[in-house]
């Protein structure tokens, strides 16, 4: 199939990376704790890729990405628990379904709010994120097992290396195909100049909605993988700080570069989790003091984003 034929080099490289990782995992070269971090990094990469499409490529600033991640996570947690799914194969349709749910919510919320731009879009997505957070905090009032502010416990652990890795590969290929097609071109046109984009015949409202829906879908899948990696969810995992995490990754990754986002995710998760291992707990609190300073410095130093020029995948 052309779909795979066009990306064979990429596939060969990914499979090699997979084999190396698998060997590391199998022979316990790295501790289970680090293995988990590796999986988490891949999940973050997948989710950030979604935000990259929304913000990096299409220029729609969203402060609510974690909400869609959370929707995917809770949907998956609920489904896998209720249906007592524990194998990878039956989990795949759940994953897809979670992606669709987040995508649908993104679509519905996107219809009204994507008319807004820049700061107003930021406030609207932030508002949506807060709504979701409020809902999750009170979710036990709707269904006891969602756990509300106590958190969702007892989620089956299903997520494994194969699953996250091949979902990421799959998503990278699809995203790349989209980006290097008329749709990706339209997204970038919209980012540069929305008005000019409509004038050349691009249905900007539809295209923005499409990018947003797709990005939210990826967040939903990421969330589902996340839920079934840690077996415990708490509403605070999906607050604005998490949205900012994704945002920072997209910015560091160069806003509009697929591989940039992937590298940035790995570096970022490695950095944060690395700090957790290296630094004592008290100093660890300094993290969110230092990160904003870095962020401000980055913005002042490179207001157009790091490595802001485009690169091919």
């Amino acid at each position: 199939m052309r779909f795979f034929r066009e990306s064979w080099i990429f596939l060969i490289v990914s499979v090699s990376i997979y084999i190396i990782l698998k060997a590391f995992f199998a022979f316990n070269v790295i501790s289970p704790y680090i293995q988990q971090i590796c999986l988490y990094a891949v999940i973050v990469a997948l989710t950030s890729l979604g935000l990259n499409v929304i913000y990096g490529y299409t220029g729609q600033f969203s402060l609510g990405h974690a909400a869609f991640y959370g929707i995917g996570a809770y949907t998956s947690a609920y489904l896998t628990k209720v249906l007592s799914i524990d194998g990878v194969i039956p989990f795949i349709p759940v994953l897809v379904f979670c992606g669709l749910v987040s995508g649908l919510v993104g679509y519905l919320i996107g219809i009204p709010i994507l008319r807004l731009r820049d700061d107003f879009l930021a406030i609207a997505t932030l508002g949506f994120g807060t709504l979701v957070r409020v809902f999750l905090d009170n979710s036990d009032k709707f269904a006891e097992s969602l756990g509300g502010s106590r958190g969702f416990v007892g989620i089956p652990r299903i997520t494994n290396l194969e699953l996250v890795f091949f979902f990421l590969i799959f998503v990278i290929i699809i995203t790349r195909n989209l980006i290097h097609s008329r749709y990706g071109l339209f997204w970038r046109c919209i980012k540069d100049d929305e008005l000019a984009a409509t004038s050349v015949g691009i249905n900007t409202a539809n295209m923005k909605l499409m990018a947003f829906t797709y990005g939210c879908m990826l967040a939903g899948i990421g969330g589902a993988l996340y839920a079934n990696l840690y077996s415990f969810l708490h509403p605070s995992n999906f607050d604005i700080l998490r949205s900012i995490d994704f945002l920072i990754i997209v910015i560091i990754g160069g806003m509009g570069s697929i591989m940039g986002t992937i590298y940035a995710s790995i570096i970022w998760v490695g950095f944060i989790e690395g700090l957790r291992i290296v630094l004592p707990a008290q100093v660890l609190d300094m993290r969110w003091v230092v990160i904003p300073i870095l962020l401000i410095a980055l913005m002042i130093w490179r207001p157009y984003g790091l490595m802001s020029k485009r690169r091919k995948v």
């Binding site: 700080l241 300094m286 969110w288 003091v289 904003p292 962020l295 401000i296 913005m299 157009y304």
Partner: peptide, 27 residues
């Protein structure tokens, strides 16, 4: 950031907010 894109300014504002909160929340 007076002449920077609007979003950069916005991100900076978010950064300032986080900084104030987490800096002041240190033990």
């Amino acid at each position: 950031l007076r002449d920077a894109p609007k979003i950069s300014l916005l991100i900076t504002a978010v950064g300032v907010s986080l900084f104030l909160e987490y800096f002041l929340s240190l033990n």
